[in-house]
Every structure is written in C-alpha cells, then in structure tokens.
Design a protein around this nucleic acid. Sequence first.
RNA 1: GGCCCCAUCGUCUAACGGCUAGGACGCCGCCCUUUCACGGCGGAAAUAGGGGUUCAAUUCCCCUUGGGGUCACCA
Length: 451
Amino acid sequence: MKNTPPVITRIAPSPTGAFHFGTARTALYNYLFAKKHGGTFMVRFEDTDSERSDRSYESDILQSLSWLNISPDVITRQSERRSVYRGHINRLLASGHAYESREPSKKDPSQEVVVIRYKNTERNVSFKDTVRGTITIDVSDLGDFVIARSIDDPLYNLAVAVDDCVMGITHVLRGDDHITNTPRQILLMQALGYQPPSYTHIPLIHGEGGGKLSKRKGALSVLDFKRRGYVSGAVCNALFLLGWSPVDEQEVFPLEDMVQAFSLDRIQKKEALFREKKLAWFNRQYVQALPEAAIRREVMPALLRRFPFRSLLNPRVLSSIVQGVREQGTLFADVRDRIQSGDYDFFFIPPVYEPPLLIPDGEDQKQVRQSLTRVQELLATRSGYRGWDAVSTHELLLPYAEKEGKSLVFWPLRTALSGREKSPSPFDIMEVIGKKQTMARIQTALNLLRE
RNA sequence: GGCCCCAUCGUCUAACGGCUAGGACGCCGCCCUUUCACGGCGGAAAUAGGGGUUCAAUUCCCCUUGGGGUCACCA
C-alpha cells in the first residue's frame, strides 16, 4: 500500500469522429478510477494517422468531456511526440527486435515502400485482465507485424505501447475490442524493456439495432444528447450503470458518489444494450432536483424567440413555467418544442380556440354557460390582490365545483383561460395572469357560448 | 471461416453452492387528479438447451445453441 505508484489512467481517442457513448463511458470509468485513488486522468489523442485525424473532432471530444464534468488532468497528442517514437523504433531496430522491410505498398501495389516490422518469435502471449482473468492468445499467426510506415511514421500499436509505458500509465481501461491488440503491445513493451500496465477490458455498449456502437451508426454522440436537452448528470449516471453495478441498490449517483462507489471488480462481463427510455428516467430524476435558475437558463432562449419583447416575460410567468418543468421533470427539448408550438402562449396573450373546447364530455352548452357564469360571479367577489393566489381561488370555487361536478366547473374555466386541452391548473393560470385578464377571458368564453 | 470472449425478466442488473431468484427502466391495473403530466400502490415478466460434479446448482466442468469482438502499411 505504501509504495504503490500513483494511479495514472488515460483514454486514447482517435479524433476521427464524434465522441460517442462507448468512449464516454470508458472515459468516465478511467476518470472515476483515477479520482478514487487520488491519481491522474489523461486524454491522449491518437492522431498518428494524419489522413483521418481532424482537429475539429478533438474539440468535440473535449467539449463532450467538459459537459459531462469529466475533466482531464493532462491532454496530449501523439502527433507531437514523433521524436519519442523515433527513439524507440531505433532501439528496436538496434536490438534486432525490428527490421526494415522493402515490399510493395499495400495501398498502391505498383509502388515499393520500406516499412518497419516487429520480428515476432513468440508463440503465446498471456496477460491478466481484470474483468476476464488470464487471457492467452496465440500470436504466431500474427507474423512480423508492421509497427511503422517509416521511422517517423509510427503505427497505432507502437505508439500506444510506447506511450503507455513512457507516460507511466498504471491502469489501462478500454473497450474490449482492444483485447486482440493487447498481445502486440505487450510484445513491444517487453522488447523495449518496459513493464506492461494492468489491463481492464470493458465490454462494449451496443446500440438498439445490435452490434457495437460505431461512428457511422448514428445519433449516439454525446453532444447530441446535450442538444436534445438532456441533463449531463443524467447522461453520466446512465452511462455509469451500463456495465457496472453497485453493491447496494442505489440508482441515482451524483459524480462524487460515483467516485466513491466505483470499483473494477464489479464491471460486467457481457456487453450492454443502451436504452434511451432508461436515460429519460434518469433525466427526470435530475431535472426534478435542479435549481430553478438552471432550468430558466435552458428555457429562456426559446421563450425569447417566441416572444421577442422581453417585457412580456414577466417573472411570474417565467417561474410558473419553470416550476412546471421541474415538477414534471420534462426533457428540455420537449419544453422548447412546446414553447415553439404555442403551448404556453396563453400566459401572454388571450387564447384563440373553438367553442366546443369549453364543453366537457357529457355536458351541454347551457350547463357550461351556467357554471361559468357562477364562477364569474364568485371570482368577482374577490377584490384587489388579496385572495387571488392559486390556493385561495381553489378554496373559493371548490364548494360550488363539488356540488355541480368538478369537471363541469373546472374544465370550462381552464379551457377558457388556456384555450388548450392540456394546460396547468386554472388556479395557477389565474394567479399568473391576474384578475383582470381572468375576467376578460371568462367573458369571452361566455360570449362564445351565447351563439 | 481462424482466434478470443460472453450468456439471469423485453432492457440494465443483484444473488462467498443452500432464498418464494431481489431491484430499476419499460409495460399493464388501481389510486390521486378539471386536462396532460408528476406522484403513490399493485401485477405480469428471467436463470438458452443437454449432460455431468454435489446431499444441494443461477453459481463449478463439458457439449450444443445463440450472441459479441477481432483478424490493416486504421485506431
């Protein structure tokens, strides 16, 4: 315990596509493990393939991590470490572990190139994997695999082997699609005289279509979920519990709890299928726990787009919308859609609707007119601001509603105020729009019912 | 196909060889409710199949079946 080296973990994404769920989970586990042991978490961009790598993906990856609150302690880039690889390739060449080979180019067979191959004399390589135990792989059919296109152009396995050792990575946690790469990397490390790190291969996440998550397969980029209005904590939480399970039955994990609880020995062996419905549930949990200010920030832009006159956004309306969103745990994207399609317009302007909307099932026009008239009279007895809050108006109208039937009394009132089949309660609406506006809308409804 | 790996409700999963196989999402029902939701309560739902080992298999071993990963001068 005393002399164990500090934990250093890393993710090694290649900037060749958007940051997707699988990589995000790997990043999360690496981060959690490092933090749990007071260690360091690094991001190392594997951009040795200059043809496919693109800086814009680097920023996508970094933004995703930052959104998820997974903050790297160190960020490096392999393309800036050519000299390190050159030195190691030279060592392999000098020690006879590697050799230059002149052969036809794979890309263009008419051309001849000189590549560098590892001289493979092993039969079996075995290593201990935290999740699966000892894995032994026959490497003889690997042959002398290519480790660099040239002295200045290392390939993936060489760069990884060198970096994991040189950077002192103690624990490699990565997707289990890398299992078959591991023996190659270990071979190179041994040839270089390095001690391989500890390996933990995490089963992949599958999409709903089956098969591993891939860049081309779609909409599972982390930033997409941000755009669609998910809360980052919920995304993290959903990821956390895909392929890992706690000792107890806790489901909702703030980041600190994750750090506390995480351990490698409870990683699942089987691949996991990601379901958005579960994420949606987590999202509800998180939205319901969010402070109002955070929700307001999410909702404000859409509101301002719909109602460009800022003065129309009075604080009471805003807080009513925000509270509704929080209580119901609504997905932000849905809130924006609703604002966009006019679901909240009645807070600002008198609604426009067809008269039949005022009449609940099984009632007729005359009854509705009577009930609404009575409601109008009752509300008129309130003067000034006192007694106009939602609780008071509810108390005021309840006895009459219970006598006549709640749906005959409350439905026409609510629809008169909102002009919508679905809306907040009439009492909440009245409180927000005020007495004057309330009375005007009821009068409008009565006029419509008169025809 | 070769090699490697995996297998509990539809999904995510729990269960040091010994329980009515537990929880969560989703689904269904009921309750709450003027509406839509939120919420509360309840229900259906699983150890892939076949052999062993054992007093006892979800748990250990083998086979079958099914699934996944990987086989680059990509990462």
